[in-house]
């Protein structure tokens, strides 16, 4: 029995030290298998999660050892995106420091900017944060839209909200991320194997319109070949 308990404790220690927890995502997707052996980059990329229904969410993966932590980056991103949004919309958005703080702690995010304030109020309060989770997963109350609004838009001067977010990512002072986006490793698209191509094409087309021609697709390891 002693030996067994030793082994279990060792195993436990191993798993505790090596584990990185699965991040909670608004939609569960199964990425398609591929023979590509290139591993996903550790840091400095933004993951674009595309649900089979075509909703889009973003997740930041910054280099936490550098000056730009995820919190700081999200904070800067929200400022930048509301700036871009307010240039072209009559109904201006602005966020309180409390809301910004809540946003800086979000894992995946993606609600229309017009609803973002309400969403952050819900998420920031411990009593109502489960409601915010439900909202993000598309199980919220009627009118609570999840996913960043995205449509077929080829006009660069009038970006849709998804394009605003992506533009904002490039425009923050985080040079590491901006360079990564330029190199094509900064944007990773994660989508389900059964998503139809039309949906994927819309996302790729949106990126192409704002001159983000290089990006990566997240895939799973293919076995047997």
């Amino acid at each position: 029995m002693t030996a067994m308990s030793d082994v279990t404790v060792l195993l436990l220690t191993f798993f505790m030290l090596t584990s990185t927890f699965l991040a909670k995502e608004p939609a569960t997707v199964v990425t398609p298998p591929s023979v590509s052996e290139e591993k996903v980059q550790e840091t400095n990329y933004v993951q674009v999660l595309v649900s089979p229904q075509g909703q889009v969410w973003l997740t930041m993966n910054n280099d936490t050892s550098a000056n730009w932590s995820n919190e700081k980056m999200r904070m800067a991103l929200l400022d930048k995106v509301s700036e871009i949004y307010n240039e072209s919309h009559k109904n201006k958005v602005s966020f309180t420091p409390q809301q910004k703080l809540t946003f800086s702690k979000m894992g995946s995010f993606g609600v229309p900017l017009a609803q973002m304030g309400k969403f952050l109020d819900l998420a920031g309060n411990n009593l109502t944060s489960t409601q915010a989770d439900k909202w993000l997963q598309g199980q919220g109350e009627p009118g609570q839209i999840t996913g960043i609004p995205i449509d077929d838009n080829k006009d660069e001067s009038r970006p849709n909200e998804f394009q605003m977010w992506m533009k904002a990512l490039r425009q923050t002072d985080n040079e590491n991320l901006a360079n990564a986006i330029k190199d094509g490793t900064g944007v990773a698209i994660k989508a389900d194997i059964n998503t139809n191509y039309g949906t994927m094409h819309r996302v790729m087309d949106n990126l192409q319109t704002i001159h983000m021609n290089k990006f990566t697709l997240l895939t799973a390891l293919k076995s047997g070949e």
Binding site: L22, S34, E38, V40, Q41, K214, L217
Partner: peptide, 15 residues
């Protein structure tokens, strides 16, 4: 709860 296998990536460059 852990993810041992990391995702693979495919690089895409659109024209």
């Amino acid at each position: 709860c852990t993810t041992m296998i990391k995702s693979q990536t495919l690089n895409i460059a659109l024209p």
